[in-house]
Simulated scan of single mutants.
Amino acid sequence: MTVPDFSASARWYREGHCGYHLRTMKSAGRILDLLEIERPGGDMSRSGLPDLVLVQDLRGGSRVSDCLGGGRFDVKSRKGALFLGAPNFALTSNVDIGHQMRVVAFPLAHWQNMLDEAVDGAFSFELAHVYDGMFESPAIRSALRKLWALWAEEGEPTHMLTRAAGCEILAELCRLGGVPFAPARGGLAPWAERRALDLMHSRLSEDISLDELATEARLSPFHFARMFKHSLGVPPRVYLTRLRMEKACELLEHTDLPITQIALAVGYSSNQVLSRVFFKQMRMSPSDYRRAVRDPGRSIP
């Protein structure tokens, strides 16, 4: 099993600096790291790290005195509130009581080029009025809920899911910072759509990335994702899940392969992961589906 290459921020939290207790940490090739952390009150200052760090307070009720890159602030945190730490900025922070939080770390090396392109070269991390304290964003809170739920559902985070979720969160941060993403272009050229779909079909069992699909279409990941949705009506990740479900149904109906082998054949790490995704999409388990298609007169419990 390959050990994930975590971001500098994830490693800092994992090593327990300032009394942090790491509850969960997930990563997909340092594209984006998601952590859930607990720690007692006290000083949380640290030196600058090369990541943009988004923090969500899961409990609320703590007094936060901080400087995250946009000037010092002193606020009482609310449950679900968001904070953004600037990259390469030495944080000076103090929280009066114990707290629990989710942290999303964006390593700049994996996002800078995409962000520059997304805003036509005008991107800057000088988002002063986003860094200057607690902020609210229903869009980001929704994206975090979906991201955490999908990672729990699918087990190991996939490269495609991670890149797509990161784009969604960063698009909203750019909008809040006054530099919205460039308007979407039209759909994919027919040849580009065909090559992308052929690649999806041929590599269903692999953790195919958005970057690989974009390269096949000779586009950047940012533009490819938006043009794909324009052409196919859904994001690449959703379309890939549909293809996997179609192949799983075919194998369940026409072969006697164990469900564990079918899971691996369609890109899921175990039969448990396949069962969770399959039930969500088909409203029945893989075993029940197999029985239903092979014995149509039999009722499903």
Rank of each mutant, 00 (worst) to 15 (best):
R145S: 13
K146Q: 15
K146F: 15
L147S: 04
W148I: 11
A152L: 15
A152C: 12
E153I: 09
E153G: 07
E154R: 14
E154T: 12
E154C: 10
E154P: 06
E154Q: 13
G155T: 11
E156Q: 15
P157R: 07
P157W: 05
P157F: 08
T158A: 11
H159M: 12
M160Y: 11
L161A: 09
T162Y: 08
T162I: 05
R163C: 08
A164K: 09
A164V: 07
A165P: 02
C167G: 03
C167Q: 12
E168P: 00
E168T: 10
I169S: 00
I169Q: 00
I169Y: 00
L170M: 01
A171R: 14
A171M: 10
E172I: 00
E172H: 01
C174E: 00
R175W: 05
V179N: 04
P180V: 02
F181Q: 02
F181T: 00
A182K: 01
A182Q: 04
A184K: 13
R185E: 15
G186P: 10
L188M: 05
A189M: 13
W191P: 06
A192L: 10
A192E: 09
A192Y: 06
E193W: 09
R194Y: 11
R194N: 09
R194T: 10
R194Q: 13
R194D: 12
A196Q: 01
A196G: 02
L197W: 01
L197R: 06
D198W: 12
L199C: 04
M200E: 03
M200Y: 06
M200D: 02
H201D: 15
S202L: 13
S202M: 14
S202W: 08
R203Y: 14
S205F: 09
E206T: 11
D207Q: 05
S209I: 07
S209R: 07
S209F: 04
D211R: 14
E212T: 11
T215R: 15
E216A: 15
A217R: 03
A217V: 03
S220Y: 04
F222D: 06
F222S: 08
H223T: 11
F224P: 03
F224C: 02
A225V: 06
A225M: 14
A225R: 14
R226T: 05
R226Y: 08
M227A: 14
M227C: 14
M227N: 05
F228W: 05
F228Y: 08
F228A: 04
F228D: 03
F228N: 02
K229A: 10
H230G: 06
S231L: 01
S231G: 02
S231T: 13
S231R: 03
L232E: 03
G233F: 01
G233P: 04
V234L: 03
P235G: 08
P235L: 07
P236D: 05
P236R: 04
R237M: 05
R237C: 03
R237I: 06
V238S: 13
V238M: 13
V238A: 15
V238T: 14
V238W: 10
Y239A: 08
Y239W: 11
L240K: 06
T241K: 15
T241N: 11
R242Y: 09
L243H: 05
R244Y: 01
M245N: 02
M245R: 02
M245D: 07
K247M: 15
A248D: 08
E253K: 15
H254C: 10
T255L: 06
D256C: 13
D256H: 14
P258C: 06
T260H: 14
Q261V: 08
I262V: 06
A263K: 02
